[in-house]
Amino acid sequence: MTTGGFDPAYSQTASIKPGGLGKRAGARFVDWIIAGIIGAIFFWLLGVVWDAPDWVSVLPGAGFGWLYFVLFEVSSGSTPGKKLLGLHVNGSGGAPKPSFKDSAVRNVYMLLNLIPWVGGLLWFIAAIAIAVTINGSPTKQGWHDNAAGGTQVIDT
């Protein structure tokens, strides 16, 4: 039952529609492609122009994706993939976009790839846990959204 436009099941106004798992996964895929292209060009230039050793350009590569998501979410509330699919990230407490801390925390699982040998597996487990918790939540918030103070991806 809603009263005054507020739906307690969503803990937000009833007009807000949470972004579903399929759209969120599609947006993430688009963003990986974009970040991959930008990162490849950047790290190629790092190696060619500055003649950096191969290991120098590989190490920050895993953190580049994290930085891509954080900077776009903090600056506009959406990454290019989210914008393309009509999604937006609200910050904690219903803020119109996440703070640096909100976005850094909600995307920190991506840095698991920096751990030698097991990082990819740990990242995969975290991503599966995110999908399961998004799918099981009436507000479509994953564990990473809750850890970031209640950020929420919504349909715009």
Rank of each mutant, 00 (worst) to 15 (best):
K97A: 14
G5F: 13
I130S: 07
N90W: 10
M1Y: 14
G47N: 13
L67Q: 08
H144L: 10
P98L: 05
Y109M: 07
G136M: 09
S57A: 14
L71V: 14
P60K: 03
R24M: 12
V108D: 04
L21K: 04
N146P: 01
D7E: 13
A52T: 14
V105R: 00
G119N: 04
G22R: 06
A27D: 11
V49E: 08
G81P: 12
G94K: 05
P98V: 04
A27V: 11
A62W: 14
P138A: 08
A126C: 08
D7S: 02
A14Q: 11
L85H: 06
G91S: 06
L85E: 08
A25R: 00
S99Q: 02
I33D: 01
T151C: 10
S11W: 14
Y68D: 05
V132Y: 13
S92D: 01
G22H: 05
N113Q: 11
W117K: 00
D7G: 01
I115C: 10
P18N: 06
V105N: 01
L84W: 15
K140F: 09
V105G: 00
L114S: 12
I130E: 15
K97T: 14
G47T: 08
S99I: 01
H88N: 03
I134F: 09
G91R: 05
L85M: 07
W55F: 15
L46S: 14
T139F: 03
L111P: 15
A35T: 07
H144D: 08
V49S: 10
L122S: 02
T133K: 06
N146D: 03
Y10R: 08
G19E: 01
A40P: 02
P53T: 07
I154C: 02
L21T: 12
I38D: 01
L112H: 13
S11H: 15
A95K: 13
G93W: 01
D31A: 09
